[in-house]
Design a protein around this nucleic acid. Structure first.
Length: 580
RNA sequence: GGGCGUGUAGCACAGCUGGAUAAUGCAUCGGCCUCCUAAGCCGAAGAUCGCGGGUUCGAAUCCUGCCACGCCCGCCA
């Protein structure tokens, strides 16, 4: 309804000039109505009462009385000190072709997300990052922004080192015997590289903890880590051979969720090309610079507002860099690639991100925008690969597919196996995505199968179904032979469901823009539920096909809604289906 | 101990730059397929918005104290 604002403001201007109230006072008061039954936009007059020394009810009344009659506004009335404006049906109908267009200025943006260590299969704990990140990518694209989706590959450091060490030193038999006391692998994912490699990683983790060899193993791993951090190309190649198959497996899983990346940037890049060394030299010259007894270097960020432990270490005593140091080098590089940066990070990275951001500012660069999210827990508690307390994304998606197939089978027994499988895949993956994306990221999230696989109202299939109904109408209209048509000429008295849908469509760009501006996809997800609900109401009240007659007005509205639904679904990474 | 976040019906969740009767879904109870796909629609019931103070014409929303839960406070990544 933001498109209605300029119209209203135009008409209000002379009225407020007469009242002697400055634009700065009344302009920002105009807001979307809380109660849509009252109107579309509302102007509360309470704050104005003080300025002119009048009763707010009086002010509201006089504004409403003086408000001229305009084609775009159906109604302007005063209630309890509020002035309510209601858009006219004709105006809304005219707006339909452009209702999905974002009103924001287009920008260039680099979104880094997921960036999970390639040391094992994707689990649902990591899924929130990937789904949140990918949805942001999609919504920014829907809003017309030029987006690069980027994955930062952690190709050095301890986790990869452990994996590389294990692959070099352990045979399959050794791995099997070390993991023998663990729950047996179902074997379902035997052919998938990430599931294979993770067994070596787990075996190594087990040895590091309890075997007699643990000290020597630790030493070997530490040697590898340090070699990688000094840019040792042979070790880095060994690492790559270890992690690449795992990463490929993870990406395969993500692909199934519709998640893809434009670019992969390796952490080691900035060690090898000297950026990290240059950065360390620069930081040494900072006025915040400090040095520990063993030669390790830090920045004291206290003067920049950090509290608690304010030393931020960027260089070890042996001269090697730390993860955060490389991250800063990476960010300096990213700023050269794009005007806007967004990172998606777990809440455990808050302090780290603060340190990186402050240091970037210290270097006359900027801190990126960051979307933080809380972790996904399981009902049994925190997810932990070591304890085997994980739900693998592959298992989840398989389960979702199976469950969806069962539902389709029951609901549409006439469909072929292939049709059922296609629908089940779309419904299953979409439901998983939607289940995670519809809640605000800072909210703690407990993963429950029953929620992920709930296909009723409030879920992805609910929205998909609205789209399907619209597709079905289109097909019926197109296949009916030379239907007679009629259109509605009087828009003043449309059925409730029709008005509701028009109103919902008018909110598309508002909601998309807010969602994109604030980087909060759940806003748009919830809006899409509202849009679907409204379409169902329209479907209930307005029949496009009545006998052999096509109501072209309704048909036009249905088509615009179908388009909006499709765009919205794609924006959330949900697969729009023609039939389901 | 310090920092950040969360606390809204039985469950889950929206609303948080202060505004009207706190929105939605699940679960519960009742109704709708001779009518474009019932994965839908209609209705009922269900909320001391964690607790206490404060600011205000007006507080779920802002301030403050307390309580509960989560995350962080590595020369790890």
């Amino acid at each position: 309804m933001n498109r209605l604002k300029p119209i209203i403001i135009n008409e209000l201007r002379p009225i407020f000039e007469k009242l002697g109230i400055d634009e700065n006072h009344w302009h920002p008061l105009i807001q979307t109505s809380r109660e849509s039954s009252q109107g579309d936009l509302t102007l509360p007059c309470f704050p104005l009462a003080k300025i002119v020394g009048k009763n707010p009810l009086e002010i509201a009344n006089s504004i409403a009385t003086e408000f001229p009659s305009v084609a775009s506004i159906q109604q302007c009335n005063a209630v309890n000190g509020y002035v309510n404006f209601r858009a006219s049906n004709v105006w809304m109908f005219e707006q339909l072709p452009s209702c999905t267009d974002s009103m924001l200025e287009k920008k260039q943006i680099l979104i880094e997300h997921t960036s999970a260590n390639p040391n094992g299969p994707f689990h649902v704990g990591r899924a929130r990052n990937a789904i949140l990140g990918d949805t942001l990518v999609r919504l920014h694209r829907l809003a017309g922004n030029e987006v690069t989706a980027e994955y930062y590959v952690d190709d050095m450091g301890k986790q990869v080192a452990v994996l590389a060490w294990a692959l070099e030193h352990l045979t399959k038999e050794e791995v099997d015997s070390i993991l023998a006391d663990k729950e047996a692998d179902s074997g379902q994912w035997e052919g998938k590289t990430d599931h294979q490699s993770v067994r070596w990683y787990q075996a190594a983790q087990s040895l590091r903890q309890s075997s007699e060899r643990k000290d020597s193993i630790e030493e070997e791993i530490t040697t590898l880590v340090h070699a990688s951090e000094h840019g040792n190309s042979e070790v880095l190649r060994q690492f790559e051979n270890a992690y690449q198959p795992v990463l490929d497996g993870m990406l395969e899983t993500l692909q199934r969720l519709g998640i893809q990346f434009d670019r992969f940037t390796k952490e080691s890049t900035f060690v090898i090309n000297g950026d990290v060394a240059t950065l360390i030299d620069t930081l040494k010259k900072s006025e915040l610079h400090g040095e520990a007894e063993n030669g390790a270097l830090f920045l004291d960020l206290e003067p920049r507002g950090l509290t608690g432990k304010t030393e931020f270490f960027y260089c070890r005593g042996d001269g090697s860099s730390l993860y955060a140091t490389r991250d800063i080098a990476y960010h300096l590089w990213k700023w050269a690639q794009s005007e806007n940066l967004v990172n998606v990070l777990g809440e455990d990275h808050k302090l780290q991100a603060k340190q990186v951001g402050l240091t970037l500012q210290e270097l006359n660069s900027k801190a990126p925008e960051i979307v933080f999210y809380s972790f996904i827990k399981l009902p049994e508690g925190k997810m932990s690969t070591r304890k085997g307390n994980v739900v693998f994304m592959d298992d989840l998606l398989e389960e979702a597919h199976g469950h969806a197939a069962q539902v389709v089978q029951e609901l549409r027994p006439e469909y072929s196996h292939e049709e059922i499988s296609t629908i089940a895949e779309a419904v299953g993956t979409s439901a998983v995505r939607f289940n995670i994306i519809k809640v605000s990221p800072e909210k703690g999230f407990t993963f429950k199968w029953e929620d992920a696989l709930a296909f009723e109202a409030g879920s992805a299939p609910f929205v998909m179904y609205a789209h399907t109904r619209a597709c079905s109408i289109k097909e019926k209209v197109e296949s009916s032979k030379k239907p007679s048509t009629f259109e509605i000429e009087d828009f003043t008295n449309l059925p409730e469901g029709c008005e509701q849908l028009l109103r919902a469509l008018m909110l598309f760009s508002d909601q998309l823009d807010t969602s994109v501006m604030e980087n909060r996809p759940h806003i748009f997800a919830n809006y899409l539920l509202q849009l679907a609900t409204s379409y169902h109401a329209f479907y209930r009240d307005c029949h496009v096909l009545e006998g052999n007659e096509v109501n072209t007005t309704y048909y036009a509205i249905s088509e615009f809604a179908k388009n909006a639904l499709r765009k919205g679904l794609v924006g959330l990474g949900i697969t729009p289906l023609e039939s389901m």
